[in-house]
Design a protein around this nucleic acid. Structure first.
Lengths: 254, 254
DNA sequence: GCTTGACCTTGACGTTGCGTAAAGGTGTAA
DNA sequence: TTACACCTTTACGCAACGTCAAGGTCAAGC
């Protein structure tokens, strides 16, 4: 597929001026020019423009983008994974901002007060970067969970503190499950502890605990491969082990 | 509390140049200047700067910001609620971008291919704006649900199409519930339809359906005021009605 | 009192990433 | 052939600061 400058501009949602500018600074040249000097773009340029816009979206300046994508050792897939991480970091910053604006609203309604430094949470990119350095590795590859956690935290209007507690519990469930799994007995003390922690964790999101829901959720962890994969991280057969432990814990195993 | 220019800059995460510039263009003047001409900022300026940064974060130019916050009819709380909406819109755009980058990754891994126009999903602010105009009112006040839906969609790696279907079902559950509720009989045909639709909806997020989970979820809708409020939109006592309908539907009502 | 170093001031010019004419050539459908 | 929507290059403008430069101020320690 070949595109004239306006066709590509409309496709990508940028102006023709932008494309000419990118040509001018040597960031994105057209595949060729036709007899009248019209810029003609091809498939390769479409992909390159997509890359460029990804980086631009992250706030990178065009010169840096050019250096990166023209680097012979440029690793496309790795760059994409980095994109994803950066976008997730931005998402976390946005979450902070949203929490911030909600705090400000409730402060305005007289429900609470805000310290001066709280008023700027979420604006500070530095904080976000620090966060990324701190959690970057951990977050890699578990985006789904993180997104769900975050949204859950917001759904429940959790305070940041509570959310931290929630995250901590989640990790504790995983680590206890790993130990219990190693011990091997779903009726054992460690397994009971894992199930109890999972119940506590569940109470964060579902205030109306019932054995049936708890057991149903546990079964779901086994049946659905996405959840299974999550608990598989703790140990082999983690989801099944957790289900058995919860069934025994709730007394619904007969 | 009083701040010198650098203190405030550090607090808010901006440069001193930025604060001087804001003074220069009449956007944010200090409370006073001391004998040596130093800028001194007070509590009021801190709050105003927070407002300014909110607007700036949304991409508004400084001149528009000045006009807005210096407008005598400027409604602070309303502005904050608008902030929240805009941030949520940005969040949705980010979600699109993340879906986009993930699609690109899986396309690169050869798992699927991407059409050219798909490559620019998420970049097009216009699309987002259209969406906002379309759903803006609806979204107001139900952020929690929306966030959860979005994150669920991502968790399940739903295609956009599937997600649309998911949203449509959600609305259908609500409207059918409203009708059924008006009819008044939780054992009636309409109530059965609402319960069935809810089951279908549930299957989107929880592939391993069980009567117990379904009923447990229904009970949770009643017990938890946040969910209750959501179904209350359909009709008065909507959550209770839905629970009863589901209990009858699943045969777990004895 | 004096120095040092971290603060503060007001200019003033530079930069990035385009927007926006201006002045003119091209492609094609009626 | 006459619109009319495209395309070209050139060039100036702009927002929101960054970045010197050249100097005044304040608190602490000697």
């Amino acid at each position: 597929m070949e595109y004239t400058i306006q066709k590509l501009a409309k496709l990508a949602g940028v102006s023709t001026r932008t494309l000419r500018y990118y040509d001018e600074i040597g960031l994105l040249a057209p595949a060729r020019k036709n007899s009248a000097g019209y810029r003609i773009y091809g498939r390769e340029e479409v992909d390159k423009l997509q890359q460029i816009l990804f980086y631009r979206e992250l706030g990178m300046d065009l010169d840096s983008i050019r250096k990166i994508i023209s680097d012979p050792s440029f690793d496309g897939p790795a760059a994409l994974r980095m994109h994803r991480e950066k976008l997730l970091a931005r998402r976390r910053q946005l979450d902070l901002l949203i929490i911030n604006v909600e705090s400000t609203i409730s402060a305005a309604e007289g429900k609470s007060t805000m310290a001066d430094n709280e008023k700027f949470k979420g604006f500070k990119q530095k904080l976000v970067d620090d966060n990324e350095r701190q959690y970057g590795e951990e977050i890699r590859g578990k985006y789904g969970d993180d997104a769900v956690d975050k949204s859950n935290a917001k759904m429940l209007n959790m305070s940041e503190e509570k959310y931290e507690e929630f995250r901590r519990l989640e990790q504790e469930v995983l680590s206890t499950l790993a130990e219990a799994c190693k011990a091997g007995d779903p009726a054992g003390e460690l397994a009971r502890k894992a199930a109890a922690l999972h119940k506590e964790w569940l109470n964060f999101t579902w205030p109306s605990y019932s054995k049936e829901v708890h057991a149903g959720l546990a079964q779901m962890y086994v049946d659905d491969e996405r959840f299974a994969a999550y608990y598989e991280k703790a140990c082999e057969g983690g989801a099944k082990f957790l289900r058995d432990a919860i069934l025994i814990y709730t007394g619904l195993d007969q």
